[in-house]
Design a protein around this nucleic acid. Structure first.
Lengths: 223, 223
DNA sequence: TCAGACTTAAAACATCTGTTTGAAACCATC
DNA sequence: GATGGTTTCAAACAGATGTTTTAAGTCTGA
């Protein structure tokens, strides 16, 4: 019934990081929830930083392997022809949404991951960049091939926007409470909704960019 | 040149919160950057929590007033007719993007705000919900009137996705580094890009949702 | 000018932080 | 049963944290 100490610590840390953030979560909170001794974190992982990295690694590696495998399958089937944008979007974000639908721990992890992209802490961002390097390169190439008429810079921003929408999608009802009461999402419906929105945004007409700066209202400096 | 202590503390706190997050930013870091005594924070604001709230309040109040004023103007001009979705989106997110374009402190603040929507800390979320209550109610009403064919729940999710995209848009190049090197955005170009994406997503075809009575996630086929 | 409020300053407060220590407990293998 | 490596445990560590205290400065208005 009880997993080993190492796994219990990872589960507790994942959940608590999600709930309180990295800095506000103390090792004492983690070890208490994991029914482990305080020293166990430093024994099994070496430091709190190393624990944070391991919390991400154990799921993120699998997640990105799934993404690459999905892209491999699509490209094999296409036999060198460009993929449809929708296929690429679905394979990248679909894997994530499916993981978020996993009640076990995937949901907690995806919500944690979503808010970590914009995490201030430098070492976390560097770590994420490394973990993502391979999969991002593959998907960038696939998108550029699928949308040759879209300038690269333009597309990168759209991809960035899509990540933002996805992040909020999995962060779910918590942040949505600002907008008012809403049902907890059925994963299938959430997936359909997000895909529809993402494809709509991705395929939107390219913006006309004027160089002339518009007048802006003055914001308050101090009060 | 030097503002008073209170303002210097607010500016320093805003910048440091943005860079390191709330918990990792200590009062000693803030007062050092503000060239103020450590006790000044508790003297002027009462506590660290109250300081955090004041950092948001001084700009957020103004921001949401601008939003309501923009909506007032649009609705006066329309004389009771529904607004165009694009107008509503532009007035809500345009104000924010314009504030983010302000080099003084608005940019720092908007980036801080963007990542705070998903902030774990309970008291911050409650505070934001209160600050947003009025403006959200107004915009919800305007959107429902402009898009009567879109179910309310559907729209709330799309609004949520839009907030996510906007949050990532202003968080900007930092998070984008994961995707690879990219120029720091010209505010006008960023505004045009985001608007194009948001409108595309908002106007996307409604997803076909195989309705929700299925409580079981991951059930591949059911009615 | 002097009193009284407001503001700054230095130091100390109790508490909490991540980490380390050294000994006990466990557990498979001989 | 003894051995040696692995894992747990309670206790302590040095340092940092938000907050409070007490005293000194600064400004304003009569």
């Amino acid at each position: 019934m009880e997993a080993d100490t190492r796994s219990r610590i990872l589960d507790a840390a994942e959940s608590l990081f999600m709930e309180h953030g990295f800095d506000a979560t103390t090792l004492r909170m983690i070890t208490a929830e994991a029914h482990a001794n305080l020293a166990a974190v430093n024994y099994h992982f070496g430091s709190k930083e190393a624990l944070i990295e391991e919390v991400f690694r154990r799921r993120l590696t699998w997640l990105n392997e799934q993404r690459i495998a999905a892209l491999d399958a699509l490209e094999a089937e296409a036999q060198g022809a460009p993929l449809k944008p929708r296929q690429i979007v679905e394979s990248f974000f679909g894997v994530a949404i499916r993981m978020a639908a996993d009640s076990a721990g995937g949901r907690t992890f995806m919500r944690l991951l979503g808010r970590t992209y914009t995490e201030p802490s430098e070492f976390v961002r560097r770590f994420l960049a490394e973990e993502y390097a391979a999969v991002i390169a593959r998907y960038k190439a696939a998108f550029f091939k699928a949308l040759p008429d879209v300038p690269q810079e333009e597309f990168l921003w759209r991809f960035h926007f899509m990540m933002g929408a996805m992040s909020y999608a999995v962060s779910g009802a918590d942040a949505l409470r600002i907008l008012g009461p809403i049902d907890d999402p059925d994963p299938e419906a959430l997936y359909a909704r997000l895909m529809s929105f993402l494809i709509g945004g991705l395929r939107a007409p390219l913006p006309e960019i004027h160089s002339k700066p518009a007048r802006k209202p003055r914001s308050p400096r101090s009060a």
